[in-house]
Each structure stands twice: as structure tokens, then as C-alpha cells.
Design a protein around this nucleic acid. Structure first.
Lengths: 231, 231
DNA sequence: TAGATTGTTAATCGATTAACAATC
DNA sequence: TAGATTGTTAATCGATTAACAATC
């Protein structure tokens, strides 16, 4: 029963299902239950069934989900049934990693070009994709009607480049710069701020250490109490 | 009034507050209201006050928050009051980008080493940090008691390397490989799966396009109706 | 038909938003 | 004291979990 308002959390889980289905299909598995999908993904079976039910009834009661069929449905839902053109801003190490990965390992996107201002890099190729001058970005994005951009430029120019991209027709930006971008309504920005990820991880890591210390302290106290008792 | 169970969402917002405070302090601003923090961060003022209240009362009623004081409090909360040692697995473009960024731009961490198996890379340096053989990882992690690892290796070896890291004493992994890692209880894994980010962005981008098409279609219909009416 | 598993509805849980008393 | 803004409590909203009827 197709819904209207699908939450971000649901949308973030769809690519995980897709990845698992790709693996299952490769392993010639053609039927999978929500319980098994739960094992593979870490999400609960109930959640998986509910997520999918937002978009339709794709399974067979008593049996499970046909992997190929479900994969195709999810591809359609996400919008990956046709290759999506993307551009990359920034040909530094991050931009290079993103370009290489998405050119050679991600079958769902097509990296049209990488843009940079470094004359040394312009004209070279990153996994078949040409590095082009930033000046040429606007014309190319317009010509090919590219909608998605990966932003891997230094933080000081991030807003400027983002605005240029949006003015040229980009409506979705995956932003790697540690900055809050200001964009017109209707433009989607997803932040992939690795600093935030790392710092929140450090919170848990150090909290864990603190907890361990506390536990060890309590253990030691318990031990001395025990010793006293035994005396 | 310090709480016990702090949600992940709260923890993910703390680094954002920290970044804004760093910028404010640099600009010599020493007092900021939750309202102004809201403008800078995009989160609501109420949410910011509530987030901070989980850890204590850091502001002054009627005035706002002292930027330097609040910054120090947040550093303590996250565990960034002392530099955190981290190691990077993988000296490819992603690993290189992560190492460079965290060595030169992130003052809160100390990149101890980058590990790889490529003989060509071993012995070279990435922004002062030495690339070392994977074989030496365990000993170094143990010796320096490193707790945090950034995992930027190919997906096929991700689990193996993660296990090695955990066995050596790592308790927190920022995982860039598109795979669900299996780790012992107490080990924290944060996934930074760029494919998931990109695909969910494409959902919104193409959904947006669909919505636009629908809107244009409706507009056209409305126009023809109008034309008919005028006839 | 019996067993299994989906799709859906109801109950619970948690996070965000709103409101306001406390207080600088 | 008046104005401003925090810290906290209450209300709302949304997402997850549990339960189960539908059905293969």
C-alpha cells in the first residue's frame, strides 16, 4: 500500500537491502525471508517488512521475497533503474577516491567529469574520467543535464562551488566539506562530514574507556570487600 | 542535570556545535545565544538547549553561552580534551585523504600510522605520517594503546583487517567499506558508507525530478483547461 | 490442511517541539 | 525592575516494536 511521506531513515536502509540482494543474487540465492535479511543487515525483520510495505507488497506469504524481483523494485524506488549522471568537484585525494570508486565499482552511476582548478591535473584522467577546469563545469552540467554533484573541495570554497553547481542545474549535493551549505529550496544536501563521524566515534570510544575504568574500579572494590569478608 | 542515556542523535550534533564554537572563538565572539547557534547550525534553539542540558547547565540565563567555556565543556564530553591517537588502515586515495586531513587540519586527533600491504608505499610518508606494513599494525597498536581505527581498505579484506585491529586492542572503527562488520560486543563500529549516502541522495534527486515532472504536467493541464475555458 | 511468512494494525517507545517558570 | 534567555517540564509527533490476521 504505497505511502506518501517516507522517512529519511527508511530511505537510508534501502541501499543496504540493495547491497545484500546484489550479493545474494551473485550467490544464486533467489528467495529470502525478512528474517534472513535481518541477519544480513542487522535491522529487525519487522522493520524490513514495514520499510518495504511503504512501497508495495513485494513478497509471498509463507515463502519470502524473490531476490531478483525485490532488487528491481528497490532500484526503481531509489531511482537507480537508469544510470545516474554525477559530477565530482575536486580532484584531490578524496575526489580521486570518489571518482575511482564510482567509475569502476558502482554500476549505478556514471561519473561525467571531475572538476578542479589545478592546471597540473586538468587534462589527466582518473579511472577513465577526465579532469576538467572548474570554468567548464557550468556548461557541461547544463549540456548533460546533470543533477547530482559530489563536493570534495576545500571548505573555504565549498559554498562558492556549491552555488555555481546549483546555478548550473544541480539539485542534489553530497557535501564532504565541514560546512553548512546554503542552497535554494528544493536542492538536497547530504552532509558526509567525516569529522563529525570520527568525533562521535571518539565519544563512544572514550566513554567506553571511562566505563571500563569504572567497572575495573568497582571490581577492585568488590575484591577488597571480599578479602575483608574472608579475613 | 547530567543524564545517563544520551541518544546517538545528540552525540552527532555535538561536533557541529564544536565546529561553530571554534569559528566563533576565532572571530573573537565570546557570547552566543541558542537562537544564534540555531541560525549557524540549522538545529532549533530548543533542541540545542536540550542537548546541552543533558550534560549540565553551561549557559547564563538572560545572556547566552560563553563560547570558550562551552567549547571546553563539549571537548570534555566528547573526549577531545586530550588528542586521540588513531590509526588508518589502507593507504589508497581514501586512506591518504583521511590521513592528510586528520594530520594537518584536525587538531583533535593524532594519526599514529597508516598501514598497507603495498611494498611501494611502505616507508613513504603521508603528511608526516609513515606508511607501515600491515604486519606491524598489531604490535604498534598494542604498544601505543591505540583505540580508534579508520578502515579504508577494499571490501574483500575489510572484515579480516577489522578483526586484526580489534584483536590488537582497537575498540572503535570508522568503517568506509560497504560491508557489515562483525565485531565483539563493546567494539563500536560507525559506518561511513559513501555508497549509501550517494544512493539515498539519488532517491531525493530523482524523486524531486518526478515531482517536478508531475507539477509541470499538472501545470500544462491547468493551462489547457484555462485555454478551453477562454474559448 | 499444516506450517511458514508476509502485510498491517495496535502498542510502545523515544525524540522533537512547545511552553514556561527560573533567573541573570 | 524590565527584558532576555536559559533550563526544564509537558505535549506532540514519529518511528520502532509487538502482535496477529491474511494467505501462500
Amino acid at each position: 500500500m504505497p505511502d506518501r511521506t517516507i522517512s529519511k531513515s527508511v530511505i537510508k536502509r534501502l541501499p543496504v537491502y540493495l547491497r545484500i540482494l546484489d550479493q545474494l543474487i551473485q550467490r544464486k540465492v533467489d528467495l529470502i525471508s525478512s528474517k534472513e535479511l535481518s541477519n544480513e543487515s542487522g535491522f529487525t525483520a519487522e522493520q524490513i517488512r514495514k520499510d518495504l510495505a511503504h512501497f508495495g507488497a513485494f513478497g509471498t506469504r509463507g515463502a519470502g521475497y524473490n531476490t531478483t524481483f525485490l532488487r528491481e523494485k528497490i532500484l526503481k524506488i531509489i531511482g537507480l533503474d537508469k544510470k545516474t549522471d554525477v559530477v565530482v568537484f575536486g580532484a584531490g585525494h578524496l575526489g580521486t577516491a570518489l571518482t575511482r570508486y564510482n567509475t569502476s565499482k558502482n554500476p549505478y552511476v556514471n561519473v561525467v567529469a571531475v572538476f578542479d582548478i589545478d592546471q597540473e591535473l586538468i587534462g589527466t584522467r582518473i579511472a577513465e574520467t577526465e579532469v576538467m577546469p572548474l570554468d567548464s563545469a557550468s556548461a557541461l552540467i547544463k549540456k548533460k543535464r546533470v543533477k547530482v554533484a559530489l563536493l570534495a573541495v576545500p571548505v573555504v570554497v565549498a559554498q562558492e562551488v556549491a552555488s555555481l553547481a546549483v546555478d548550473s542545474g544541480i539539485n542534489a549535493i553530497l557535501n564532504f566539506a565541514p560546512a553548512k551549505l546554503t542552497v535554494p529550496e528544493g536542492v538536497h544536501v547530504h552532509d558526509a562530514d567525516l569529522t563529525i563521524e570520527l568525533q562521535s566515534l571518539i565519544y563512544y570510544s572514550s566513554a567506553e574507556s571511562e566505563r571500563l575504568k569504572r567497572l575495573q574500579h568497582e571490581l577492585q572494590e568488590a575484591r577488597s570487600r571480599k578479602t575483608l569478608t574472608l579475613d
